[in-house]
Write a protein that binds this DNA or RNA. Structure first.
Lengths: 222, 222
DNA sequence: TCCCAACTGACCAAACTGGTCAATAATTTT
DNA sequence: AAAATTATTGACCAGTTTGGTCAGTTGGGA
């Protein structure tokens, strides 16, 4: 998954950022990554463009050659990574399979991988969701609803409800399943963060997640 | 629950903050609340003492009359609120009842109330847990382990395992129950945050939480 | 050679930083 | 009432950082 590298929707450019899109690809990445990292850590208002250019290894002038000001940079980043997630992330979910466990496991694993491989992208999107700066807040809201609809909307769409025992409240059951998988992956990642053994022994997590899934199937399925 | 107001453990004062403890109680609260809010929002390094004194309605000099510098203020806050939580929050949990549902429901509701009534206290503790500033990080670690032990240690201690069906893996079942209640309360609070109807219709949340608990009991208990 | 874009970094005024301290106000002690 | 003590102020400090500019250098294509 070459996340952050594939999307090239020219529409997202507008006219103002067109210069940025023509430059060397690797330099683009350096700038994008430096910027989301800084914005994620400090929020819009407290993020420093000086830090961004230092981290990206470019001059101050160049950044403002590509983006006319801080606000335009921020909004470009937001739109860009919303597109990235929509295409590279949620596009991966197999909607053929109508089994809720298959879908949720896929989502959970994708999310874990995202956090692990591209923590800055994840943190940036989360912090953008919480962003309180009046300067940019209003512009974000619509795109956010859009993203949530694309994602959670499709995951729970057209689930096979016939598999559940007949006395089970399906909505609540799905919630329990979701929260269990979410809680499990949070725990797994926190455990790894503390232990710092960053050798990705995904294998254990995968199989342990399956134990929970099997248990939940016994509980909820016919 | 007069959280933040009751603890008066003189030991936490040391000699350095003794002045602060003698002043008017309401002013103490103003300063404490202003400080944790700022630290929670921006982290140790980026928090501004100017903002704190402005919010607290005191002069710059006075803050540094009570605390010799920013670091001492931060560490005092941390210790103070660890004590507050240990005494006012975890002290509320009834350890007589050995039923996991009773305990976890109590913890979940307590946590919800904390977030609702004292969001800054909660955010401050969370941000302190993530704090990365080398200046204060090391001092926090021990107290944190202490707090986690006091809290999660006792909640899961001496649970009545006889109530579970005999083919159930109890550790995993408890995890599922915990994650469900956590997920539920997160969802409830997010729903409320978006709707902004801050009339606390706790009643709905309480009864809806009970529905989940009853469902889980059917699944896991004999 | 010229030309134009990419690119640099010194520079700007303004804001802000944690912290100090002499002066004033309020309270207590004599 | 005077004196002594304590609480409180906010102007001030030197230093850093802010978002943004712009005159000028570089490098590649014609």
């Amino acid at each position: 998954m070459k996340l952050t590298e594939l999307v090239n929707d020219k529409k997202e450019a507008g006219l103002l950022t067109s210069k940025f899109l023509t430059i060397d690809h690797e330099k683009q990445q350096r700038i994008l990554n430096a910027a989301i990292k800084e914005f994620a850590q400090k929020g819009y208002a407290n993020a420093s463009t000086n830090e961004i250019v230092k981290e990206a290894g470019i001059s101050k002038g160049l950044l403002f050659h590509y983006f006319k000001n801080k606000k335009e940079l921020y909004l470009y980043l937001y739109n860009h990574f919303v597109n990235v997630l929509k295409n590279e992330f949620f596009g991966e979910i197999n909607l053929q399979d109508r089994d809720i466990f298959v879908r949720l496991k896929a989502v959970t694993m994708l999310k874990s991988q995202l956090i692990k491989k591209h923590p800055d992208v994840f943190n940036f999107m989360m912090s953008a969701y919480q962003e309180s700066s009046v300067e940019v807040k209003s512009e974000l809201d619509q795109r956010h609803r859009e993203l949530l609809q694309t994602s959670y909307g499709t995951v729970f769409d057209n689930i096979d409800t016939e598999k559940f025992k007949k006395d089970i409240d399906i909505t609540r059951a799905i919630n329990i399943i979701s929260w269990t998988l979410e809680g499990f992956s949070n725990q797994a990642m926190e455990r790894e963060r503390l232990a710092k053994h960053s050798q990705a022994d995904f294998t254990y997590d995968f199989s342990e997640a399956d134990v929970y899934i099997e248990q939940l199937k016994v509980l909820f399925y016919k």
